[in-house]
Design a protein around this nucleic acid. Structure first.
Lengths: 133, 133
DNA sequence: ATAATTAATAATAATGATTCCTATTTTTAT
DNA sequence: ATAAAAATAGGAATCATTATTATTAATTAT
């Protein structure tokens, strides 16, 4: 029971996310997906994003700005948030598995994983801000 | 100009936070601080928590559950969120400075820092869940 | 000390993201 | 094709947080 059914809307949402590398918010997904289906509702977008994230088909990101973002790329990687322009970029980092072990050292309990995002200035914002000495 | 003035309410909020190690939400701060000052308003609590966090006197935490938490301890440390009981615990980890360098390796731009929290089962929840084999 | 400033507050309205509700529409199994 | 129930559309509701504004209180000048 509780079998999951196919839906046009969910497929549309998922394939839209796969075309984007910029981690859009639910509202951005909604506004874009309406080009293909003008009658889709915002609630449907939220429900399906949550469903897809729960099933591990997409990732939900929270970079602390009060809005959830979604990532169609579920391969292991990290994120960077530009403090100036606000864009969210992908980041590959080596050897991050170890930090769960490092955290376990002084901790009684079971550490299942971690959430990390980096912040600073992205390439173009850093160039603009460059100290002209 | 724009000199900051002293206020009873801000002092009350800050000293309350210093007594707590459990990273309370704004609403929890509000409900507790009302014992000392029943006329304090929720807006005042929010405004002062934001102000104190901006000045670095307290820390604002976001563990992805849609509510901001506040920490009176501004010394460098990390946080752990129990997936079962929801409590937020402090965590000391060695050698975490390196991860900003590791992240910079494959990144064009300036990395200023990172935000990390760990999740899993806290000590007592892990004990309860223990496999009784 | 007293009066003049103006930051801070209290109380409440407003906002914005997200979730909930329900009658209707789609999927899927028979 | 029909029935059962998952999913949707549209809109109302929720909840954390921010904004507004008249009033109060902390600081500064007199």
């Amino acid at each position: 029971m509780t079998a999951r059914r196919h839906s046009r809307q969910r497929e549309l949402i998922k394939s839209f996310l796969e075309t984007r590398k910029d981690h859009p918010t639910a509202d951005t997904v909604y506004r874009n997906v309406r080009n293909q289906n003008p009658r889709i509702s915002l609630g449907t977008v939220y429900r399906n994003l949550t469903l897809l994230a729960e099933e591990g088909e997409i990732r939900r990101l929270n970079v602390g700005d009060g809005v959830d973002r979604f990532d169609g790329d579920v391969s292991p990687h990290y994120h960077f948030v530009c403090q100036k322009c606000g864009q969210v970029l992908d980041l590959q980092i080596e050897g991050m598995e170890e930090i769960d072990y490092a955290a376990s050292e002084n901790f009684h309990g079971r550490i299942a994983g971690h959430v990390t995002y980096f912040y600073g200035l992205c390439g173009s914002c850093a160039d603009q801000t460059e100290d002209p000495s």
